[in-house]
Design a protein around this nucleic acid. Sequence first.
DNA 1: TCGGCACCTGGGAGCGCTCCCAGACTCGCT
DNA 2: AGCGAGTCTGGGAGCGCTCCCAGGTGCCGA
Lengths: 325, 325
Amino acid sequence: MARAAGVSRSTVSRVINEEPYVSAKARDAVHQAILDLGYSPNQAARTLAGNRANAIALVVSEQGSRVLSDPFFAGVLRGVHAELSGRRVQLVLMMTQQDDEQDIVGYLAGGHVDGVLMVSLHGQDPLPLKLADAGVPIVVGGRPLVGDGIQYVDSDNFNGALEAARYLVATGRRRIATIAGPKDMAVGMDRLNGWRRGMAEAGQPSDLVAHSTVFTPDGGAAAMEDLLSREPELDAVFVAADIMAMGALRVLHAQNRRIPRDVAVVGFDDLMIASTALPPLTTVRQDVEQLGRTMTWCLLGQLDGEEGLPPSLLLPTSLVIRASA
Amino acid sequence: MARAAGVSRSTVSRVINEEPYVSAKARDAVHQAILDLGYSPNQAARTLAGNRANAIALVVSEQGSRVLSDPFFAGVLRGVHAELSGRRVQLVLMMTQQDDEQDIVGYLAGGHVDGVLMVSLHGQDPLPLKLADAGVPIVVGGRPLVGDGIQYVDSDNFNGALEAARYLVATGRRRIATIAGPKDMAVGMDRLNGWRRGMAEAGQPSDLVAHSTVFTPDGGAAAMEDLLSREPELDAVFVAADIMAMGALRVLHAQNRRIPRDVAVVGFDDLMIASTALPPLTTVRQDVEQLGRTMTWCLLGQLDGEEGLPPSLLLPTSLVIRASA
DNA sequence: TCGGCACCTGGGAGCGCTCCCAGACTCGCT
DNA sequence: AGCGAGTCTGGGAGCGCTCCCAGGTGCCGA
């Protein structure tokens, strides 16, 4: 390669790394040689010689099975990739199981990657903290429940839920329930607290809460049945995830409640299924792709040693009004 | 590391690579030192010295955006990861755009990864062929329309569709339509041809075909409307994807057709939405996770130089009978 | 004229492994 | 005793880069 361009290895290296102090002639010669030879620098050698891996890991905690099918994860992945494209940084995908956690920490702290993005659905996961302690740059998607110093990016679940609650109040609903997510997930609690605030603002009771332990249609259905048995007169329900709202809609249909006339339904996430539901679901939109982009942007900033990065970020949500409320 | 174990670098290397000709004493000493030091071998150095990258790429062609949200992709990813776990092989995720194809070929052929798994939704993609020509081991998920020598793994779309057609015939349907996928995707054509065979077997006409150019609910809805206008008397429809079946169901409901009494509906894929649809959808199940596992298994086999690998594989499908047919 | 500086270039060292060769030691056989 | 085959070990070379130092050149101001 160096021979083909008629320069030294050093000069080739300088051109590739866009360093200063290279003459235009040398630069052109190298570029031409790159094209002629279809040359692509050996990443392993670069990693070994420099001490930078030119790669970041996207770590998915919990059994990958559940997480991967989640549209949330897909969106994040899309955003991460979009932000990475153009930079010479590879994305390595890793999934953790319970038992190999120590291996994972060893691997990630061992210089194989420059930094870690982590999507941690249940907030108690100790991995982010361990990695941060080991000095690995890390950004978490979704607010972790433990670990203070860790940089995270999340959607503004609290205000999204608050906005949904206000909307239901503003449209005249008098008996508003909520189907909340699991108590050990920040996303579940934040949305519940937003709804509570909305109820409090309006002077309405916030007793009609049903928790589902999982974000699934069946979980939503069970919670909806519970709510209806406790309060047959309820006229609105804020469901903390579209996927649970599907189950809630099924139960409401089965009990012949008209939507939105008898019961208004608001979801959260704005998945594709929200717009194809019957009736199309009014929901709080979160931009998960932007979440992925922002996480990546934060991590790359850390790696570049940028100062004054915000410790954490919340991304705005917006209410999408369709037919169900 | 070698010093800590009291042996030479060579011996450490032999232990790590599980080579023969190491005494039990030396092996134990090395293992102990690994634990004590939390040692994790430097991948870059291994890659550089051996000439094996210890990584495979999962390449997603087309704009990643569409593909990533696809449950198909998520399932494959899950399977790939499951099959990889335990082996010391990293998974690198890449997405291609139109313009950087040459870069991608250069990168993938440049020894940065040992092999390539590719999920190519539209079958005309030239990338698999180029990579195969460049001598890169490659396995494609989903039958490619071009490129003969390329190893692929796919669900048995033809027989799945055939089984669906036979089932509709066997349950007494007399006027059976189909909503087919795009003509430039193997998955679309294979399912259509399976349905055709089923019609031919039963001596029924196979004229009621509507193509959708995209696998979306709206595409399915438009096709359903087309079919109903051409043949108001139709009493069954085989929809080549659950996601399109959602749209078809919407149209049928809107026209007050009872399902399954007036019109039987059979989908394909068995996504989660199939079981939560109204009514729950009878559909042809394909095991996409198994698809991912099998792809990986084939690629690793190629890399290990195993002989007699089948050129390609079809995975069985099965009819899941629910309420819609 | 001479130093000083900014610009540009080449070559040595070394990143942490794997591969390969040379050798040591132990058998069991002739 | 002698020999070869099988078992085990260490060290040299080298993978393809980056980093750093030692120069070279040209131009400016003193």
